[in-house]
Design a binder for these strands. Structure first.
Lengths: 202, 202
DNA sequence: CTCGAAACAGACTGATTGGTCTGTTTGTAA
DNA sequence: TTACAAACAGACCAATCAGTCTGTTTCGAG
């Protein structure tokens, strides 16, 4: 295998991710990406079939990282024996990393992808759906365990689990609009408080 | 004043709003808008200085309607004497209109606007900020009254108030990704349950 | 009826777009 | 060292873009 193309490919993805999160997908031109990545058109279309193929690859990588963050939070709280306490600690884990996340990116790639129907209908949104389903399943398991241990009725557990994703995305937009990244931590704090009260972890 | 231009202007805004919500702002061309509105380039640039000026006008109108929905919900629950009960009824009001909203639009214009940095930095996002602030203030007042009447500590009331906006936007994205508009009602239901528990309205 | 400005219509333009094509460089296996 | 494919560079192209310009229509004031 000649010349390690994977490195350049990653450089393109890095530059593209930054630009797409910042300006949106349609508003980001291939030429802009090339300039930012310091590479050429030949390289780009060698690694990607088209611009929408870039979106696919971008989302694929982002989803993998996203699920990685979920696993990290699950692992970090795995030793907590009380299921309700674990749910609270799980959310608090994200609160603790909120500043770090928001300083690295001013928005979520999912927002940029879901904004454009062409990406939703061509299958790129399916990748986001996968992430949503993984989050839902893992968190629903945590919540079900907590509900059982505290003998509480949480209603629609899947919907409650989805509310974590909803809080993240909504908070991203709130931060973006106000230019105040601190909202992310605050909204995760709201989520934690609400869950703690509901689970009786006062 | 010759020929009622306001009518045609509204037609352009209607067509543009639909296209921008569906495909995003940058992915929507002026020509597409003209075709959908059944008008011409001359008409468009007579009513709008530029394409970004269209975004401004679009957002302005959307914000007005958005705040209108807030007022409607406030009015509809104004007769409820128990402040905590009113908060719950306030959220339930949006639950009841969730299907209607989601059948009319598959996403929120705010998402499309906030996706593109050019619109965030040129002042269009400031219009969204105004809407956010109005919602925050009105809901914070409701929450403060409820907290006082039930003698509860809600923590950061502004952040809790913002969580309504956060839930809306997050739910829009969840619906959009999964193609399941029912998530909107479900997420508002989650929000209502969490607030009811926190306010002690069981 | 006239006249002037607002309200349009649509051909046109220069810049930018995603994508192609030809040619060159690079690394490796034989 | 040669052979070959992957990795890349960049000129090039047709299409589309936002925006301009010239001319026409519409309508209300005088």
């Amino acid at each position: 295998m000649p010349k390690n193309g994977a490195i350049n490919r990653e450089r393109i993805l890095d530059a593209a991710q930054h630009l797409v999160i910042e300006n949106g997908f349609a508003a980001t031109s291939v030429d802009q990406v090339l300039k930012a990545a310091g590479t050429s058109k030949g390289a780009f279309f060698h690694h990607f079939d088209s611009k929408v193929d870039l979106a696919r690859a971008l989302t694929e990588r982002y989803v993998t990282a996203d699920i990685g963050h979920l696993r990290t939070a699950l692992d970090a709280t795995a030793s907590i024996s009380d299921p309700a306490e674990r749910v609270v600690a799980f959310v608090r884990h994200f609160e603790d990393s909120a500043e770090e996340v928001m300083s690295a990116q001013s928005n979520c790639l999912y927002v940029a992808v879901l904004t454009e129907q062409q990406l939703v209908s061509n299958g790129t949104a399916d990748l986001v759906n996968h992430a949503i389903e993984v989050w839902r399943k893992e968190i629903a398991d945590l919540l079900t365990a907590a509900a059982t241990s505290r003998d509480r009725d949480l209603g629609d557990v899947d919907a409650l689990a989805d509310h974590v994703f909803v809080t993240f995305e909504g908070a991203f937009l709130l931060c973006r609009s106000t230019g105040t990244p601190e909202h992310m931590r605050a909204q995760l704090g709201v989520l934690r408080r609400l869950l703690a009260t509901t689970l009786g972890t006062a």
